[in-house]
C-alpha cells in the first residue's frame, strides 16, 4: 500500500478502513436490493444502457449462423424435405382428428354452459443474452414494456414451458427459467391427472415435490401445467420424469425430471399475454334491494 507518491502526512484513510467502508456500502446494497427491491430503477437504467450493445454484439453470431445455413448440403436439404412431407401427412391426420375433437368439445362446453377459453395473444421474443446461472437461472429477451409485457407472464417455446417473466424493462425483459431453484410450477401428471408442484433444482433439472409414496408416477410420464394458479394456462408441457426413487428418511417420493422446453437451445420464444379468466364464485345470495 506504500504508493510511491504517498505524502508524509496521511491525508486519506488507510486501505483497510476504505475496504471496510466499501464493504458496508456493499452490504447496504445487497440488503436494499434483496429485501426492499429499492434498486430496480438502477437495473432498468443499466438495461437501457446495455441493450443496444448486446443487440449489436449478437450480429456476428447471427451472421455466422446464416452463413452456416447457406452452405448446408443439398442432399441434406432433400432428406429434410422428404422427412417434412412425411411429417406433414401425419400431422394432417391428427389435425383432422383435433378439429373433430375441438368441435365436439365446443358442443359439450356449450351444453355445460362453460366459458370458452379466450384466444391466447402471444408476443414473439428472441433470446438476447444469457447470464451465468450460479444462483438463479435467467435469460434476457428482446421485448419489454413497449410490447405491453409485464412481470408474471408465462413464456413458452415450441416444446414446452420456458419460465416466467420476472423483470420487465422498457426494451428488454428477464425470464426466470422453470429449472431455476425455488421456481415453483403447479403441474399434473398427464397419465393419471394427479396434481403436484414442480420445482427447479438447478443444473437444468426439475423435481416433483411432495408426492406421497403411494403416488402412481413412472419414468417418462409427462408433466403439464395444471392451470390452477391462474398464472400458467392449463396443459402446457413442462417436464418429463426421468427418475423415481424412494428415500427412507422422507415420507415423499423423490421424482426427478428434465424440462421439455429447450432452455439452453431455444433462441425464439413466445410470451403468452392473455391471462386465464378469473373464475367468479357464484354469489350465494341474490343481491338484495335495500329499503331506503
Amino acid at each position: 500500500m506504500a504508493a510511491s507518491d504517498q505524502l508524509m502526512f496521511a491525508r486519506q484513510l488507510g486501505a483497510t478502513a476504505r475496504l471496510l467502508i466499501w464493504l458496508l456500502v456493499g452490504v447496504a446494497c445487497v440488503v436494499a436490493d434483496s429485501r426492499y427491491h429499492a434498486l430496480d430503477s438502477m437495473r432498468s437504467g443499466f438495461s437501457l444502457l446495455l441493450q443496444p450493445v448486446r443487440e449489436t454484439l449478437r450480429v456476428p453470431a447471427n451472421v455466422a449462423a446464416e452463413l452456416g445455413g447457406f452452405f448446408t448440403r443439398h442432399r441434406l436439404l432433400q432428406n429434410e424435405r422428404d422427412a417434412l412431407r412425411a411429417e406433414r401427412a401425419r400431422l394432417w391426420v391428427s389435425v383432422n382428428a383435433a378439429r373433430e375433437i375441438s368441435r365436439e368439445n365446443a358442443e359439450l362446453r356449450a351444453l355445460l354452459q362453460l366459458q370458452a377459453r379466450p384466444g391466447q395473444r402471444v408476443v414473439h421474443a428472441a433470446l438476447l443474452y444469457q447470464g451465468r446461472d450460479w444462483f438463479v437461472q435467467r435469460m434476457t429477451l428482446d421485448r419489454g414494456t413497449a410490447a405491453k409485457l409485464h412481470s408474471g407472464l408465462p413464456v413458452v417455446d415450441a416444446s414446452g414451458l420456458v419460465g416466467q417473466l420476472t423483470q420487465v424493462y422498457p426494451g428488454t425483459s428477464e425470464v426466470t427459467l422453470v429449472s431455476s431453484p425455488e421456481q415453483l410450477t403447479p403441474v399434473f401428471i398427464e397419465r393419471t391427472g394427479q396434481r403436484g408442484l414442480a420445482a427447479g433444482s438447478g443444473r437444468g433439472q426439475m423435481e416433483l415435490r411432495y408426492m406421497p409414496t403411494h403416488t402412481d408416477v413412472r419414468v417418462n410420464d409427462r408433466l403439464l401445467t395444471s392451470g390452477i394458479d391462474r398464472v400458467y394456462p392449463a396443459g402446457i408441457p413442462v417436464a418429463r420424469v426421468t427418475r423415481v426413487s424412494r428415500s427412507q428418511s422422507s415420507p415423499y417420493l423423490r421424482v426427478e425430471g428434465v424440462p421439455l422446453a429447450g432452455l439452453d437451445r431455444s433462441r425464439a420464444v413466445l410470451v403468452l399475454l392473455a391471462e386465464p379468466p378469473l373464475i367468479q364464485a357464484p354469489s350465494p345470495l341474490p343481491p338484495q334491494v335495500k329499503q331506503p
Binding site: 464493504l23 456500502v25 446494497c29 436490493d33 438502477m42 443499466f46 447470464g131
Partner: peptide, 17 residues
C-alpha cells in the same frame, strides 16, 4: 452484478476485496 442478474452488491463487494 447487473450483467449476471445477481443481487446488487455481490460482485461489488468481491471486487473490492
Amino acid at each position: 452484478d447487473f450483467q449476471n442478474g445477481g443481487v446488487f452488491g455481490q460482485h461489488a463487494m468481491a471486487y473490492v476485496v
